[in-house]
């Protein structure tokens, strides 16, 4: 297929998707599902802006956050949008799952979407929690200590998992580096993959129904 033909094909497919009627029972998706997508966009954008000023080192992390809040123009707003965005994402993702549960839309071939939705909510909790640690002030380092102590109590895998998360015997540079890697790279990519898989499952289901 030549480039031009492929482009025409893509445009035609996009046009078809835009013109396609949305079944009335799926209107509810636009309330919470769309809000979650929009919030993920806000979080991705503000997260990228915050990463310009953030320094992931125990001595410099809290200083860089204070610098961002007090010295950088609109820095307080970007951080505020990021923080409240993550809070609202947890609220909307929970409401979306609750809506799916009450409507029974996890049955009839939709089990994959339900599992992915629950995992996405769990990832959102992970993202919010690792984000709390990044300020690395007295509160976040105490929170890291408490979370690691809780992780250690998990039988069999707990101690090894806590040791890996801590990055050694003591909480320090490695712990913050792991929290930063999880928050800025690993968990967002995982969330992106799960989201893409979720949307693909929805599109495949719709295509099968229309066929």
């Amino acid at each position: 297929m030549s480039g031009t033909t492929r482009e025409e094909g893509l445009l035609r497919a996009l046009g078809r998707a835009l013109r396609a009627p949305v079944p009335p029972e799926r209107k509810g998706w636009f309330a919470f599902g769309w809000s979650c997508l929009a919030l993920l966009l806000v979080l991705g954008t503000t997260g990228a802006l915050l990463s310009i000023y953030y320094l992931p080192a125990p001595g410099a992390a809290s200083e860089s956050v204070r610098f961002l809040m007090r010295e950088v123009a609109w820095g307080w707003l970007v951080r505020g949008l990021h923080r409240w965005g993550s809070t609202l994402l947890l609220v909307f993702a929970t409401l979306q799952l609750l809506r799916v549960f009450l409507a029974g839309r996890y049955r009839g071939g939709r089990a994959g979407n339900w599992v992915l939705g629950v995992l996405l909510l769990l990832l959102s909790v992970g993202l919010a929690f690792t984000g709390e640690l990044l300020a690395w002030d007295a509160r976040s380092s105490a929170l890291a200590a408490a979370a690691l102590s809780g992780t250690e109590s998990i039988p069999i895998v707990g101690p090894a998992l806590a040791h890996w998360m801590r990055g050694g015997a003591e909480i320090g540079t490695a712990t913050l580096a792991r929290a930063h890697a999880a928050h800025a790279l690993i968990l967002p990519w995982l969330a992106f993959l799960l989201l893409a898989l979720n949307l693909w499952l929805l599109a495949r289901r719709r295509a099968r129904r229309e066929a």
Partner: peptide, 15 residues
């Protein structure tokens, strides 16, 4: 309701 600017890093507070 802006987020706090963050306190000084110090000794680990008791959880």
């Amino acid at each position: 309701f802006p987020p706090l600017a963050g306190s000084e890093p110090g000794a680990l507070a008791a959880p």
